[in-house]
């Protein structure tokens, strides 16, 4: 079963959002237009708009209102990807050339800034200070999270709290606010807004932990890059963090092989084996499941409508994904 099968009934509305996004990225400059469309058509799952729409179902659902928030959040996500590719000096994303590789860094910067501005314009459909506060806070936290990720690269003495705060900012927050803003824009009750926020937060945390597990357990074919990419780049994720806390030899080996320089460490498969054997993968899976359980529980108290079933199914799907 595909993810999209879990919310088939939203298909016409998702199409509307797709058109909204295409309209939003219309630009006079041909390169700006081409770069934005390239990004738009590069195969994103539109999971944030889906969360907006499903959450809006718990209020007065009007697609012609809600679509503005859904588009705004997807545009923020898209713009951050363009800038992330400059940060990571990445040439490929989802198998196609990044904007910075196809043109250059400056085109990527202008495109990202243009799309961010479009996102804010979309959000300004709502003259509602809570909506603007939630969005601007999420954008700020995302930036701070990325700044901290760079600060903490090659720092092998991190604790679990630092890791959890980082993945909250990196992934969970935008999913949480997608749910929250869907509910707010449809005028859902305050209680339901909170329930949906915590659902999104917990799903996002679980999703990112699974992503971090897959970086160790996936094959090169599945990942599109060699396993252990995070560790190679000095990014400490949960499986490695657990291993280092429970096996001092593993910590020494990571320090010895990866070090702090950023140079290519060569073959790191012995480290990956060590992390696997430490119980780090199992521990991470357990924690991811716990977040999923919390996500399920967050939905208690919401009305039993088809959107609730879709949210539950999406959470289960995320929990079972292996690529």
């Amino acid at each position: 079963m595909k993810l999209a099968d879990l919310y088939m009934f939203l298909k016409p509305d998702i199409k509307k959002i797709e058109s909204e996004l295409e309209r939003a990225v219309e630009a006079d400059h041909p390169v700006l237009q081409e770069a934005s469309l390239h990004l738009l058509h590069s195969g994103g799952k539109r999971i944030r708009p889906v969360f907006v729409l499903l959450s809006a179902k718990f209020g007065q659902y009007e697609i012609d209102r809600v679509k503005h928030i859904a588009a705004a959040l997807e545009l923020i996500h898209m713009a951050s990807l363009v800038h992330d590719d400059v940060i990571d000096d990445a040439d490929l994303r989802r198998g196609s050339k990044t904007i910075k590789a196809r043109w250059d860094n400056r085109v990527a910067m202008y495109t990202g800034d243009y799309i961010f501005a479009k996102a804010i314009e979309k959000a300004s459909f709502f003259e509602n200070e809570t909506i603007h506060r939630v969005i601007s806070n999420a954008m700020m936290e995302m930036c701070l999270g990325e700044i901290e990720q760079i600060r903490d690269q090659y720092n092998w003495d991190q604790n679990f709290k630092t890791y959890l705060r980082r993945i909250k900012r990196k992934t969970a927050l935008l999913i949480a606010v997608s749910c929250q803003l869907g509910a707010i824009s449809a005028g859902a009750s305050r209680e339901d807004q909170n329930r949906l926020y915590y659902y999104g937060y917990n799903v996002g945390m679980s999703y990112q932990i699974i992503d971090d597990i897959l970086d160790f357990t996936g094959t090169e074919k599945e990942l599109g890059k060699p396993a252990g990419g995070d560790l190679r780049q000095g990014n400490v994720t949960l499986p490695a963090l657990y291993a280092m806390h429970h096996d001092s030899f593993c910590r020494e080996e990571i320090n010895r092989i990866i070090g702090r320089s950023g140079d290519d460490p060569g073959d790191i498969s012995p480290l990956l084996d060590m992390i696997n054997q430490s119980g780090g993968i199992e521990y991470s899976k357990t924690l991811s499941r716990q977040y999923l359980q919390k996500a399920f529980r967050s939905l208690d108290g919401l009305e039993d409508i088809s959107a609730k079933k879709s949210l539950l199914d999406i959470a289960s799907y995320i929990g079972s994904r292996n690529s």
């Binding site: 951050s80 800038h83 400059v86 940060i87 910067m109 990202g112 800034d113 961010f116 804010i120 603007h132 506060r133 969005i135 601007s136 806070n137 954008m139 700020m140 995302m142 930036c143 701070l144 990325e146 700044i147 760079i150």
Partner: peptide, 14 residues
Amino acid sequence: TVLAGDFFSSLYHS
């Protein structure tokens, strides 16, 4: 530098 610019953008909106 990329992140600082984005940070200032988020602050302007806030």
